[in-house]
Simulated scan of single mutants.
Amino acid sequence: MAVPTTFDLTGKIALVTGASRGIGEATAKLLAAHGAHVIVSSRKIDACLDVVETIKTAGGSAEALTCHIGEMDQIEAIFSVIEAKHGRLDILINNAAANPYFGPIVDTDLGAFQKTLDVNIRGYFFMSANGARLMAKNGGGAIVNVASVNGVIPGVFQGIYSITKAAVMSMTQAFAKECAAKGVRVNALLPGATDTRFAATLLHNPTILEKALEHIPMQRVAQPDEMAGAILYLVSPTASYTTGVCLPVDGGFLLA
């Protein structure tokens, strides 16, 4: 049996959440560059349309759909639209996330706690469930959950966020085990410190950045494109026998 070793995604339908900037934007552009039709999704349509225009200008195929994954009705709505329009989904990148609170874990208020769980756990869970069901109807597909190295080593003053990312890792493996027989592969990416607006509060603080670099053997933060490359591998035919993996892309942080 020939083993596919290609990153060609021609004809694939891909949904990327949180795709208006950062890792999501970089991933949407890279998947489109390798032939996928990319559904660029986030809470704000204008930002998504900007990414779609960039993809189309580069010769790719894309469309924009809004979805706040913290809202159950919006999750149901986006999958209804995708199934009605395309009849299939081949790739799902769960990237949208919430991190509304930075401070002592014991001072986490109920609002921040609930918002983080609603997006990072409930949102990922039901996006994955809907995605896996639709993929199974058409012979399979690939899901990548963007977790974090904080799911392995909790970040200081990032308690509830870290807890949800640990849950995403467990969720990834649970879905991978049950969905494999349907041809659906489910993996997770564990980004280390990455230069995105999401992390700007931490990484643009010289004192915090200096402390962070002490624990990164490569002595630098990542760029979003470096995360997108790992995601491309995980959804591509080259990774056809890879499922249930939680892949650190962290400059060696978890080795330090």
Rank of each mutant, 00 (worst) to 15 (best):
T6M: 06
F7V: 14
S20R: 04
R21W: 04
E25C: 09
T27F: 01
T27S: 03
A28V: 08
L30G: 07
A33C: 00
H34R: 14
H37N: 12
H37M: 15
R43K: 10
A47T: 12
A47K: 07
D50H: 10
I55N: 05
T57K: 05
G59H: 03
A62L: 05
E63P: 07
G70E: 00
G70F: 02
E76I: 15
A77L: 07
I78R: 01
I78G: 01
F79K: 13
R88E: 09
R88K: 15
A96H: 03
A98E: 04
N99E: 05
N99Q: 13
P100G: 09
T108I: 15
D109K: 10
F113D: 03
T116P: 07
V119W: 00
N120D: 04
G123M: 09
F125P: 05
F126E: 02
M127T: 13
G131P: 06
A132Q: 01
L134V: 14
L134H: 00
A136C: 08
N138T: 13
G139I: 15
G140W: 02
G140M: 03
A142R: 01
A142H: 07
V144P: 06
N145V: 12
N145S: 03
N145G: 08
V146P: 03
A147R: 02
A147C: 11
G151S: 01
V152A: 08
V156T: 15
Q158L: 14
I160Q: 06
V168I: 15
S170E: 09
T172M: 09
Q173L: 12
A174I: 11
F175D: 00
F175V: 13
C179W: 05
A188W: 07
G192Q: 01
A193L: 02
R197T: 14
R197M: 05
H204V: 14
E210Y: 04
K211W: 08
E214I: 12
I216Y: 00
R220T: 13
R220L: 07
V221G: 08
A222G: 06
Q223W: 04
D225T: 11
A230T: 12
A230G: 13
I231D: 06
L232P: 06
S240D: 08
T243L: 07
V245F: 04
C246P: 03
C246F: 01
L247M: 14
P248M: 04
P248Q: 02
L254E: 03
L254H: 03
L254I: 15
L254S: 06
